[in-house]
């Protein structure tokens, strides 16, 4: 065990975690101990490996997630798409089916949509205080492949897709159920195998 005290004063084993798992708030159960005698400072490894929790939980620290997220910057083609279209077309919706915003729909545009409570967000879910103010997650539409992805961002709360926790970008299919905070949202695509905005200028 190679113990490290992170900048926020948490002890963790650098053999098991690339960055402090407590700082993410995501880990299910973590338990590390230190002896002042064995506790030499060890540089954190940069290896991107998912940590293995002792109790077999599938929860990964968010710091690990963040590395994935930047490498999977799916929405790169979006600006081009908007330029081509000369307007910002809707490509799908999220519909709240459970929770504080039940019954409300949220438009997904043809780009990398940010999700959060703040009005600065593309998808602004105001009624649920358990959703991060900014960048809770992103919903990306990729015009080239006509595909949608759910990308976890800075939320400290776990996002679920069809009841499974999401730590890395996940591809969305029609009628998937996404859980943000206390709400459940159904994903309803407009662009699918039957329709795209391509060639409709």
């Amino acid at each position: 065990m190679a113990l490290q005290e992170c900048a926020n004063g948490h002890l963790y084993d650098t053999d098991q975690y690339p960055t402090c798992p407590y700082c993410s708030g995501g880990a299910n159960v973590i338990n590390f101990a230190a002896s002042s005698e064995v506790g030499k400072t060890v540089a954190a490894t940069n290896a991107v490996i998912p940590p293995i929790s002792e109790v077999g939980s599938t929860v990964a620290p968010q710091a690990y997630m963040k590395k994935e997220e930047s490498s999977a910057d799916i929405g790169k083609t979006v600006g081009v798409f908007q330029k081509k279209m000369h307007f910002e077309p809707v490509v799908g919706w999220l519909v709240c089916i459970e929770g504080p915003e039940k019954g409300k729909d949220f438009r997904i545009y043809g780009k990398n949509n940010t999700v959060g409570r703040s009005e600065k967000m593309d998808i602004c879910i105001k009624g649920d205080t358990t959703i991060s103010r900014e960048n809770h997650a992103r919903l990306a539409y990729d015009e080239k492949h006509n595909a949608f992805h759910l990308i976890p961002a800075e939320s400290t709360n776990t996002i679920y897709l069809n009841d499974e926790p999401v730590y890395v970008p996940a591809k969305l299919t029609s009628r998937d159920i996404i859980e943000f905070g206390e709400g459940k949202f159904m994903f309803v695509p407009l662009c699918d195998d039957n329709f795209t905005w391509k060639d409709k200028k």
Partner: peptide, 20 residues
């Protein structure tokens, strides 16, 4: 000799914080 332990329990979110 110091040890820390933290778990979510049955809650959705971790609202405990600690520091050393």
């Amino acid at each position: 000799q110091v040890a820390n332990l933290q778990g979510l329990g049955r809650r959705q979110r971790q609202e405990d914080s600690f520091t050393l």
